[in-house]
Amino acid sequence: MNDSLVSFVLPCFNSVGYLQQTLDSIEMQSYTAWECIAIDDGSSDATLSLLQAAAARDQRFKIISRENRGLIATLNEGIAAAQGEWIARIDADDICTPDRLEKQIAYCVEMGADICGSWVGFIGDRSGQWHTPVSDAQIRLALLFNTPIAHPSILARSALLKANPYPADAPHAEDYALWCQIAATSNARFANIPEVLLQYRTHPGQVTQAKKTALLITAQRVREQYARVALPVALQPLACEFAKLAEPTRILNHAEWLWMCDFFTQLIALQPECRGALGEFWLATLQRSRGVNVFDFPRALKLALQMPPPKAERKTLLKQTLRLAMSDALWRKLKP
């Protein structure tokens, strides 16, 4: 087995509620060549005590404790302190499977990947799974819309992250900004293992829940910057409008839905090799569009044939087809 040292980077801030489960999941890794750089970012609860107990039990835990500096500074500090050839991210409320590192190391070696995430299962306030795109090409395309990598699931080459620190001007979307930066400026290979290797906890106290407005503003700026270089040259002048309408939480009117339909049609014509990666995105665009009706059915059918949604979205596709058949207005009256 590959014996390269892996450095977990674990930022902690008032994390006592779930931290012990995270620490236990790190200790239980079948791949044993790891260290954990755990940074107590000025916590006021018993977070530091839990970390110190873990270090006393297992010397592979390396603890840093200081005043609060925020997540981005903490991540960059942890990466700078890491001694490993690889960096493994995890948050203080998540749980990784015992074979996570073993499988990610093997996958990176096999695929020549520089950044490798995995599918995740949700725990806490949400259930189900997040099946992220697998290949480098699919991930780079998906970055045009949102982050296609579960941040706390990643394993990345240490040298790559040391050379590309998390951007200080991207609060609450620092991972999305970093992946876009790396994708736009390097030949680093992305991958996601099509298997759940991390249990991702959702709860009201998360930054992504409490800071939604700031996150959306940052993500839209990052999306536009990336689109200006990642889109085919013919579509790059549309980057600003695309970035605005591609925001996953934005509700589109009928004219905006038509604009996005035309955009998808142009994109697939210029990059036909991406047909398998765009299915979920045009379908999600339809879901958040209002005022659609039966006259939009031929347009949606064309998109479905050009860019088939993944099997997991077949139920959604059926519902949206029914919605078009009866018009959006009637659908919303009848929908419970």
Rank of each mutant, 00 (worst) to 15 (best):
E280G: 14
E280V: 14
E280Q: 12
F281C: 07
W282Q: 10
W282M: 05
W282V: 08
L283K: 01
A284C: 08
A284T: 12
L286F: 04
L286N: 00
L286V: 08
Q287E: 13
S289V: 01
S289T: 04
G291C: 14
G291Q: 11
G291W: 06
G291I: 12
V292C: 09
N293M: 13
N293E: 10
N293C: 14
N293P: 08
F297P: 01
F297V: 05
P298F: 09
A300I: 12
A300E: 06
L301N: 09
L301Q: 05
K302L: 14
K302V: 11
L303C: 04
L303Q: 07
A304V: 08
L305F: 08
L305A: 08
L305D: 10
Q306S: 12
P308G: 03
P308R: 11
P309G: 02
P310F: 09
P310Q: 03
P310G: 04
K311P: 00
K311R: 03
A312T: 10
A312N: 14
R314A: 08
K315M: 13
T316A: 15
T316Y: 06
T316S: 13
L317W: 14
L317F: 13
L318S: 13
L318P: 02
L318A: 15
K319S: 14
T321G: 09
L322R: 03
L324P: 04
A325N: 00
M326L: 08
M326Y: 07
S327C: 04
D328R: 07
L330E: 01
